[in-house]
Deep mutational scan, measured.
Amino acid sequence: MDSLVVLVLCLSCLLLLSLWRQSSGRGKLPPGPTPLPVIGNILQIGIKDISKSLTNLSKVYGPVFTLYFGLKPIVVLHGYEAVKEALIDLGEEFSGRGIFPLAERANRGFGIVFSNGKKWKEIRRFSLMTLRNFGMGKRSIEDRVQEEARCLVEELRKTKASPCDPTFILGCAPCNVICSIIFHKRFDYKDQQFLNLMEKLNENIKILSSPWIQICNNFSPIIDYFPGTHNKLLKNVAFMKSYILEKVKEHQESMDMNNPQDFIDCFLMKMEKEKHNQPSEFTIESLENTAVDLFGAGTETTSTTLRYALLLLLKHPEVTAKVQEEIERVIGRNRSPCMQDRSHMPYTDAVVHEVQRYIDLLPTSLPHAVTCDIKFRNYLIPKGTTILISLTSVLHDNKEFPNPEMFDPHHFLDEGGNFKKSKYFMPFSAGKRICVGEALAGMELFLFLTSILQNFNLKSLVDPKNLDTTPVVNGFASVPPFYQLCFIPV
């Protein structure tokens, strides 16, 4: 009986604490739906499609509103004006990374994606500088992407125009580009180590996009005490870190300090320079996690976009025909596509942009946080508050993009057929937390897609009208449904 009384008292205290925290903070924060004790607004949000729920709530509470995930307040920004004001106009104040408990377990605050403060700034600055020195957006990395595009075309030829699921092959190409940047090595598509790495990356994007992960991140005790797919994700990350550590040891034994070959060499050189400046942010643990982040951000996002792009091109054969006509006119058949071609191919450029806009790969991006107490639109948001960005509300804005739910390359073309930029184009987020590999991803999408369409016609196994382009999961990332196609050599 005594234990029951204690339990009831504990629960009562928890409920009172929950109510007090919510009521004391709500006077400062933007308005929002009334949260339930302990669980907050979790029942009012469709976990399978958070973005749709945010759109519905914005119609009631406006472009800036507050939700509670458990006891934790989260300020939501919906629509271009609110997102721009926060991420661009007040970029420094909104540059923090929001709480992501599962990532905390995986990387302990290291790396480039989930770190904060001085650690994040130094690692991000170093990573950007190193990638630029190796030619991100310049010639040397373009050579690597072109080489991988040629290998991709050869792998597709091996399908002999038979029906195939493109998931694996389209994942190999961007993964190999990242391998060449980090390890100075590309792998054969049949290499077992490479296959294991690909498998872990593919599993992780599916797990991260599941409703279960949303629950884990908002009720963090689940991570330590409950079984579930989150444990598989943590094991996959541990596998990748151990693999990278092996490569780091190989580099330490063979590195030429006067001739760095890749990202690992550059990081080890930085560690050597910083060894007298303790404590340094440049450690082996930081290198492991930064490399894992580059793999995660640079492989599955690009391969998922490529997979979605081919599905949309199957669905819209008239678009595919126009792209192939432009390829034939500008590039021809006797040389590989290059980035200089893009400025002469406005329709193809528009298609690449429209694919990214339409699929809305990361509907709410990753959570941000404010780095200080900030007054925002007459609300006071306390330091450390998590900020949720609705990228969907920007990419699918119906004023900027008429009929935003329709796939239409003319969203990025003017009346004369010239490519038209849009400030609403934010597939990689915006501001200080914009994806480090934005330029690389854009290069890969253009070169891989043009190389495929230069060499193959795409054949659907069903009537294009019957192809479903609805994402199968739409949590962290929008993942396309399973499909097969035939690559018919031109």
Rank of each mutant, 00 (worst) to 15 (best):
G91T: 08
S3G: 14
E199A: 13
K235T: 09
G70D: 03
K322T: 13
N231V: 06
V76I: 12
N455L: 03
Q340V: 10
F194V: 06
T299I: 12
K118F: 11
P37L: 04
G40S: 02
L67Q: 00
N202S: 12
S336M: 11
K138A: 11
L15I: 10
S254W: 07
T55V: 14
L15F: 14
K423L: 10
G437H: 04
S3V: 15
F65P: 00
D49N: 12
D89G: 09
I327N: 01
L312I: 06
P346T: 04
Y358A: 04
I215K: 02
R26E: 09
I99Y: 09
N202T: 11
N231F: 05
D360H: 07
S140F: 08
S254L: 08
D373T: 07
N259Q: 12
R357I: 00
L294W: 04
P174D: 03
P30G: 01
G117A: 10
N116R: 07
P367R: 04
I47R: 13
S58N: 10
A106I: 12
P464Q: 06
T159L: 13
L447Y: 07
E288G: 13
L268I: 09
G79E: 02
Q22F: 11
H230G: 08
D224T: 07
N217E: 13
R26P: 08
C10F: 14
D191C: 07
S220K: 15
S115A: 14
D463F: 02
F219G: 03
L366W: 09
T34M: 11
V323S: 04
P317S: 07
Q484I: 03
P33V: 00
L131S: 03
S365I: 12
L306T: 02
L156Q: 00
I182Y: 02
R307F: 01
N217L: 11
M255P: 14
T159V: 03
L54R: 01
R21A: 11
P471D: 02
S365H: 09
Y68G: 01
R157E: 13
D143R: 07
I178W: 03
C151A: 15
R132C: 04
C10V: 13
M339R: 05
S95E: 15
K423R: 10
Y347Q: 03
C172Q: 09
Y68D: 03
F428E: 05
M136K: 15
V473T: 12
M339D: 08
L395F: 07
P35R: 14
L447R: 01
S24R: 14
S3D: 11
Q484N: 10
L11T: 15
L11A: 10
A149S: 08
A82S: 07
L102A: 07
S280Q: 07
G384L: 02
G27T: 09
Q22A: 10
C172A: 14
E92I: 06
K200N: 10
V352M: 07
N378E: 11
G475N: 12
R157S: 09
R124D: 03
L294F: 12
F94E: 06
M240S: 03
F219T: 05
H230E: 04
K399C: 11
H411G: 01
V472Q: 14
K383A: 11
F168V: 11
R342T: 03
M129R: 15
N218C: 13
V490N: 12
L449D: 00
G417T: 04
V177Y: 00
H344M: 08
S24N: 14
P404F: 05
F183L: 08
F446A: 00
E274A: 14
L453T: 03
V60S: 12
V8L: 15
K185M: 06
P63E: 09
M426R: 05
K200R: 13
N176R: 01
S162E: 13
E438S: 11
P427D: 06
V351Y: 04
N218E: 09
L395P: 12
E104W: 11
L15N: 01
E199D: 14
K160L: 07
K322E: 08
L131E: 04
H353P: 00
M198F: 14
Q356H: 11
M129D: 15
Q252H: 10
Y379H: 07
P404R: 02
W212L: 07
L445R: 01
Q484A: 04
S286N: 10
K185L: 03
M240T: 07
P404G: 08
P260D: 13
G137Y: 08
V323Q: 01
V473M: 11
G40P: 02
K275H: 14
Q22M: 10
E328P: 00
T305S: 10
G25W: 14
S343K: 11
S127E: 05
I181L: 14
Y80H: 05
S180P: 01
E199Y: 07
L195T: 10
Y243T: 09
I223M: 06
L449R: 01
H251D: 02
V153R: 01
H368R: 11
N258P: 06
P402Q: 09
Y61M: 01
C13E: 01
T283R: 05
G91K: 07
K275L: 09
C486E: 08
Q278S: 11
S209D: 15
F407D: 01
D188T: 13
F412S: 01
T229P: 15
N202R: 13
L156S: 00
M198H: 07
G62A: 01
